[in-house]
Design a protein around this nucleic acid. Sequence first.
RNA 1: GGGGCUGUAGCUCAAUUGGCAGAGCAACGGGCUUUUAACCCGGAGGUCGUGGGUUCGAUUCCCACCGGCCCCA
Length: 509
Amino acid sequence: MVRKRLADLEGLSEREVDVWPARFDRTHSTREIRESYGHLEADARTGQTAAVAGRVRLVRDFGRLVFITLSDQTGDLQLFVSGDHLAAESAELLPHLDLGDWVGATGEVITTRRGELSIGVDQLTLLAKCLAPLPEKWKGLRDVEQRSRHRHLDLVVNPESRQTFEIRSAVVAELRSQFHQRGFLEVDTPILTSRAAGAAARPFRTHHNALDIELYMRIATELYLKRLVVGGFERVFEIGRIFRNEGVDSSHNPEFTMLESYQAFADYRDVMDLVEEVIPAVARAATGATVVGREAADGPSVPLSLEPPFRKVSMLDLVSGQMGEEVTLDTEPHILGEMAASRGVETREGWGAGRVIYELFDRLSAPGLWEPTFVVDYPLEVSPLARRHRREPRLTERFELFIAGVEFANAFSELNDPVDQLSRFENQASLLGADDPELHPVDEEFVLALAYGMPPTGGLGLGVDRLVMLLTGRTHIRDVILFPTLRPTENPLWKTYRRLLARRFADLS
RNA sequence: GGGGCUGUAGCUCAAUUGGCAGAGCAACGGGCUUUUAACCCGGAGGUCGUGGGUUCGAUUCCCACCGGCCCCA
């Protein structure tokens, strides 16, 4: 097949047709044609000439008359190609036209007898040859792995996939706009760092040759951004790729996109207000609504409102409700341990009440949080970068936002006391165990920065990929990342193609 | 880490109680001037994921391996 299409191409170039033209003067997108002429009756002529360009998706060939469905980024349009009206050079091209070819078409805007808006083509130009066969036209490309692996084909044949990434672009654009509007300075902090810090996660390691040092790809942007607040940038944010050397599943990709923001003189209550404004604004900008359809695990799509105010509930109240009896930081550890064990939640020797309560929350309560919910006041042990709660020092001023059982945001009143911060870092060692791969050496530069004084600050981390999933109804993160991380494989087409293309290359030289 | 499912033509999928491998679309040849996933006729296309084992015979049964999907931890 490739051989035949290459032969077509050679045949055309021998007839002095430019088969790889450098440009084409398009006058209209297919959408513009539809918008300007969509109202026409059947069998109409407009006398208006237009030039459109796109990929050949369908061909209905009647011999002397050919209908072509042309597809560009904005939609589809029919080409009406009658042998009687086609310029001679274009007529030569027609028999060599294949599904998938990029063409330009010039002619009158008309409708057919059946009323289909069309271009009555008199000039047809090959813009680029499709040498490889496109996926099947009915079912397209279904296999989820193939769709991620060959994203270019997925985008050609699956319009809903194109739409997903258009929404993703709108989400990122609106996030950026929301933070700029509020006076946040957008910054870029290092991806290659000398130590991975700011989260509990395994980093990717790499090596810098000239400096001969180990480098780690960032697992968070948090510590750098807070150093900028120390430096006097009172509002900063970064939308950036984060890398965590961990497993891949429906909500985790080794590289993903996170927004982090920090604002001086604010606490976590202010950050809640911010999130309540930003999330609905982004939803409106990206989808036109603040209600999304979300499929329950075992049921049909249920509408989910993103309109504020969001529910606010403390972790202790939530866990108490879940357990059916009051749970506090003073609840005896063995009682908490029994609660966990009787519900199949594993705990470890030496965990304090806060750690066990967090585990109960994470395993039992969080998955059931359907409507947008701020869970507030996290135990100190699981929040090493958050300020102690102003009324209960064993808790922190921290919240996470849950929607449809998934964590979307994590935020706190930032810890700015360098003494407390250092002791928290050093306690992590005893908590995680000295050989835990998620344990990182203390970031000295960060602690020293705090020693110069960081104003009270409210910080936020927001998962961009998960937000896109929510707004597009996708349940797998790989559906919202253009090129998700995959095990490399050899494309079975490659051997054939390489041989054929190489032969053609040899003929040319 | 545990469990379940899965890999067959370029794509989407069948079939086989172990006996010549099937369809639609795409591609190829032919026909057709109003189609909408056009239609009609014809021919072609396969390392049945890889490697072993059992068997007269394995795509099918068994084992291992390589991918992938889902659920649980």
